[in-house]
Design a binder for these strands. Structure first.
Lengths: 345, 345
DNA sequence: GTTAGCACTCATGCTCAGTGAGTGCTAACA
DNA sequence: TGTTAGCACTCACTGAGCATGAGTGCTAAC
């Protein structure tokens, strides 16, 4: 059996109707609401075929049809049309993400917030994993007799620092020596590279002469590097899930919100996704996420290089066309913004 | 009418029973379960008196009695007995909060997590507002021809920095001059003091000689100071609210979780509370929080000075005795921990 | 002051019939 | 051969009616 033109039209109508109403779609409704040119009986026959082909199911005998994950996949790949954003939406987005941008983190948070407001879904925004970010400058600064600040600057402009309580005495010269040596050894290396065991080891040999001082500093340096590799994940619009009838069930809502407790797992999942706008529907997400959820992610770029992600998570019954349009428009804006400020943090 | 010994015993039994069961307590249940020595009829009379006095209500005519906010207040102030924590709980707490403490933020997060796990409520932990924290050291470091890092260190050991993209040329000497001048002017001042308008103004006059350089730096400096004043608020166990029958209602749960979106408001509310263990019950919280919620907060100290807060939020029907004991024990542990590490961040 | 007895209330849970939106099948039609 | 009308059937949903039981308040007797 093949997907005739008419079958496609019916399928599209069912998906469209169901996405908006959330109610199973019956043959009579379909023929009345959309001018199909055929009787309900004919539509029933087609629906029956579509069900056999795996595009539709029905919750119980006397209910209308609802689209399967497979149907949504077809819809997203072939049937869906791009939506143009309203001027109002465009204005809101560029206002929040373009003008008056001061802090990187703040902009990313705004993006998440905006995305959830516009889509009425749960949104998230993740800062780039600075895998490719190279170290540029390392400095140890004496603050008082027992405190030294270790400052690490990366090429992206990211700065990280730790105040170190010194358990051994030190001189300014020693600190400078160590700073220079560290900068010399690690400059140009990516953060992940710097963290590899043998580089650390070989450096430790280099500075053996400095004895306890180096031993005091190194664990802090490594921790700083690890911190620099962390990504931040902001989520917003969590309670939006409650406005969706399908999740008007405590247990489902609870499962959904638990995800929030496992932010790290979720971040990891996000990082594994490809670049560009990626849509995964229902089962495609693997069992860990909620079964009846779809996930849409998109990537934005900082300085044309570092890659962060924004996206939404919601029921498989979501307005894919609108949501993807909004996300695309937002990533374009983020790209512009972070090109101009140069990823300033 | 006065609170006789017997009335108090009955009230205590009702509160105790209701806290554990969540079901309205009837006279028969009470006389059977707790050895009251009087018949249900007598208890009914006493209950009727207690209701008249405002300690009890009943949801409908044929239901048992439930305690009012006033009753909980009496319970918390006079009737409640301290609970000893189990060895297991003590072990868990000191393990997470005492041993292997490396990062301040991390420890605070662990505290929140632990608190929600032990109490099965929603918990939070707030870092201290560094009102009294004094500036110690300010430095401007050249990174490359267009980037300067501004580093600000406070007495608590807190370090904050910003990478500044310079729009004007600068020399190392100018930077050093400015660093020295800033340290000289702001050292010993609290962060809030440093942010007051006239101090900033007078300083601006001081450095007028440096012209554009100063103008480039000052806004960033002020933003850094503002950032240093921010507190972090971690929440945990949000989904615990779903296990409480009273909140097994989508709308209530939603209202509760919305609080999470207004973290700033909540943080502000927390900061206004007095030191020590503070319990506010139901209406006492003011209308903003959920009406049927109680809030328990406690303060912990860093270096014996800075004051942070941890606590829980849950239904007025909560195990006040257990929860306060746990919170008290945890703050003691946090105090110890942050005495030892000296508030290292 | 305490208690037994009794009428009364009211949420809860159950059954049962009616309703309506939907299906699948069959037979007739173009 | 594809399309359609007709019809029997399914099944979630709703609301009425009823029994149940936990609880109260009141009264009169102890």
């Amino acid at each position: 059996m093949s997907l005739s033109e008419r079958k496609l039209r019916i399928l599209q109508a069912i998906i469209g109707d169901f996405i908006y109403s959330g109610e199973p779609v019956g043959s009579r409704t379909l023929s009345k609401k959309y001018d199909m040119g055929v009787s309900p009986a004919t539509i029933r026959n087609e629906m029956s075929d579509l069900e056999e082909m795996g595009f539709l199911t029905h919750p119980h005998t006397s209910a209308g049809r609802i689209p399967s994950d497979k149907a949504y996949r077809l819809y997203v790949n072939n049937l869906m049309e791009k939506r143009e954003l309203s001027e109002e939406q465009k204005r809101m987005i560029s206002e929040k993400l373009h003008d008056n941008v001061t802090e990187f983190q703040e902009t990313i948070q705004h993006a998440a917030k905006l995305l959830s407001e516009i889509t009425n879904l749960t949104s998230f925004a993740m800062t780039p994993k600075p895998d490719a970010d190279k170290l540029k400058y390392i400095n140890l600064l004496p603050v008082d007799e027992s405190t030294v600040v270790l400052m690490t600057v990366a090429e992206s402009g990211k700065v990280s620092n730790t105040a170190i309580k010194m358990s051994v005495p030190y001189t300014d010269e020693n600190l400078q020596l160590l700073s220079k040596s560290m900068t010399y050894n690690f400059k140009g290396k990516t953060i992940s590279e710097a963290l590899t065991q043998d580089i650390i080891e070989s450096f430790k040999n280099d500075i053996a002469a400095l004895g306890l001082l180096g031993e005091n500093i190194m664990p802090n340096f490594m921790k700083t590097l690890e911190n620099m590799l962390n990504v931040d994940l902001y989520m917003d619009g969590l309670t939006n899930i409650f406005s969706i009838p399908e999740y008007n069930d405590i247990d489902k809502a609870k499962m959904f919100l638990e995800m929030f407790n496992k932010k790290d797992d979720f971040a990891k999942k996000l990082m594994e996704r490809d670049d560009g706008v990626i849509i995964t529907i229902g089962e495609e997400n693997g069992g860990e996420l909620m079964p009846d959820c779809s996930l849409i992610t998109a990537t934005y770029h900082v300085d044309g290089k570092l890659v962060g992600k924004i996206g939404v998570i919601g029921p498989t019954r979501m307005k894919y066309d609108e949501v993807t349009s909004v996300i695309e428009y937002m990533t374009q804006n983020l790209n512009d913004t972070f090109k101009l400020t140069g990823g300033k943090e």
